[in-house]
Design a protein around this nucleic acid. Structure first.
Lengths: 211, 211
DNA sequence: TTTTGTTGATTGATCAGTCAATCAAAAATA
DNA sequence: TATTTTTGATTGACTGATCAATCAACAAAA
């Protein structure tokens, strides 16, 4: 069995195993032994390749993000108009792979971890920014910048909120319904922010100051 | 110092301490010693009154929920019309006490814990249901039931999503902006769901089933 | 003296991380 | 080609730290 060139194979196996174990267990409080067992190697080997548990977890979240970016790029490639691209972004967010209980649990665990681990937080901030700016780019083609920014913020929040609500597994909402809900939001706010594309917008964002 | 009738005092002190320590630390992986120290007693006493760490955490989340319900009931008492009540519910969700980094971190930690602890999950489900049904009750006074249900779901998701995004502390959104965003959503969907209150609604919620 | 409140010390379990040793492929050398 | 050396892969066993939970004991009311 012992051969040369095992490193990339083991690293991938361990990262994949970590994702699965974390997803099943619903928490980052899993042992290196659990992860290593899932990957079919010893815990010592996991330490050998990653140095520490924290580092393995960092690599794991990176892999989650990489997958999401791959999916997003692929989906955007198919879309023609800004409006289509918006739908593509929304669809990817609820893509079947991402929306399993295990993956949702893993995301949630990383969000919690981000409260303590600066590096984990950085990665999640990257995700949040990316989602927001993807939405923003296309919204700006349809709306004035200030309205576009608000809607991007709102849509991103709704997507994240649908995720977290899904994590409770009570009255699960379903992929299609989640997409529909987010699309509805975008449609309704596009309509209300530019009833006619040129003028007469109502300002829903009353700049009321904190009480 | 030892006097009789300490039990309720200590219980409250410990629960409050737990909330603070969890909020600061951003995780439930805090020790009984940490909590007890914050409350000014020994770890053994915390075990004496709560039996186990898990039980103390359960009581802590209950207290969080109790506070939220108190605030909600109070806010609803002031509101007259269904539309006012909707605004009251939204406002309470982002009430200053609830929207501090510490409290948000605590909520997030409990969401993560809910993946493992059945009892924690039950409490969060109660919260989710309560938010949804509060919104629903007033929306039903303004809209047909099916539209009301969708908007309630969407608004609840947006509220939770704004929370989770806030937890990342990058580009924090702020209380008033969060309220405005949610209000905007409700306004826009009220408008789009009943352009004239009687007929002509568009059905944004295509009942497409999950593939 | 009984009850209630309280703690320091201890126990037992769990885990991340380390280390020395083993094994087999690859490379170097004869 | 045959033999030796080197190197990467791999692990079991161990260590040190942490922590929840327990317990025996003590102090102050009742």
């Amino acid at each position: 069995m012992p051969k040369v060139g095992m490193e990339p194979v083991r690293r991938k196996a361990l990262v994949d195993a970590a994702l699965r174990v974390i997803g099943d267990h619903g928490s980052l409080a899993v042992t290196m032994s659990d992860i290593a067992r899932q990957a079919g190697v010893s815990a010592a080997l996991a330490h050998h390749y990653f140095g520490s548990k924290e580092q393995l977890l960092i690599e794991t979240i990176r892999s989650l993000l990489r997958q999401l970016r791959r999916d997003t790029v692929a989906a955007l490639k198919e879309a023609r108009t800004p409006r289509e691209r918006l739908s593509a972004i929304i669809r990817v967010s609820f893509h079947a792979d991402q929306f399993t209980p295990e993956t949702i649990a893993a995301w949630l665990a990383f969000y919690a971890e981000a409260q303590r681990s600066e590096e984990t937080r950085r990665f999640l901030v990257i995700y949040a920014r990316r989602l927001r700016s993807n939405l923003l780019a296309d919204l700006k083609a349809l709306l004035p910048a200030d309205a576009a920014e608000r809607i991007a913020e709102g849509a991103a929040a709704m997507i994240d909120g649908l995720y977290i609500r899904q994590s409770l597994k009570s009255a699960p909402i379903g992929i299609e319904a989640s997409i529909a809900l987010t699309e509805d939001y975008v449609n309704a706010l596009l309509a209300s922010a530019s009833p006619s594309p040129t003028r007469g917008r109502k300002n829903h964002f009353a700049p009321s100051k904190d009480k």
